[in-house]
Design a protein around this nucleic acid. Structure first.
Lengths: 113, 113
DNA sequence: TCCTTACAACACCTTTTGGTGTCATAATAT
DNA sequence: ATATTATGACACCAAAAGGTGTTGTAAGGA
């Protein structure tokens, strides 16, 4: 059930799919409800939904003739954590930058003597 | 210079590119150094690097006949923050779950009377 | 000087992606 | 009972993605 980062990142790579996620963050929606919000066909939306489901990013529940789609936010953690690994480097680079800046300032000072 | 989430997510959607980022997190590398680490041609690697650069995820510096590639981790923030938006829902869903659990327990209690 | 290395720039190919349209079917509303 | 709605299941298509190989060229090493 727990999908790896590949399926998640793949699902996230399309702007339509990311927008769908944002919609589902607001409320659960049936397929046609979602399709209405875009300028593409329901068939196309359906394919996007299938990819989102493969990535485990959304849940689908049958309700009468409807398929009610809901956000499965936990799955986003996989990607979030992958990216989180790089968080350490943001700080390092920032430290580097500050070191550079102080070096530059020092040099300027020296040459100014 | 600041690229939107589209270019970043697009760059992240390929496993080879994500692996390249992990390599560059360890050390700066020239194109051939990177190509050596994979089973695909340097030409293919070059295309991946171009996409990573489009997303602003790596920097390129000419050094003699080499192109030294380095990680530009700040750009990952764009994607990280996009995903961070959903962090609130992780908690909400957890709260939902706990509410359900206590409801279930209550029901069980009631029926047990 | 000559050979090798590191790369850019193409042309080309196959598969995947994102889209369309059509038809069938099951649930719902009139 | 019938019309409408929500969806699944195809077949199909153009463009993008991910790969190959070839050729040219500039920088470094022998």
């Amino acid at each position: 059930m727990n999908t790896g980062p590949q399926e998640v990142f793949r699902a996230l790579s399309d702007p339509t799919r990311r927008q769908i996620l944002l919609f589902l963050a607001q409320e659960d929606l049936a397929i046609s409800d979602i399709a209405e919000r875009f300028d593409i066909t329901r068939t196309a939306i359906n394919k996007h939904l299938a990819i989102l489901e493969e990535g485990g990013l959304i849940n689908s529940e049958v309700s009468g003739r409807e398929r009610r789609k809901s956000l499965a936010p936990k799955s986003l953690k996989s990607a979030f954590e992958w990216l989180g690994y790089f968080e350490q480097f943001w700080d390092i680079k920032l430290a580097d930058l500050q070191r550079e800046i102080s070096r530059d300032m020092k040099e300027k000072k020296e040459s100014g003597k």
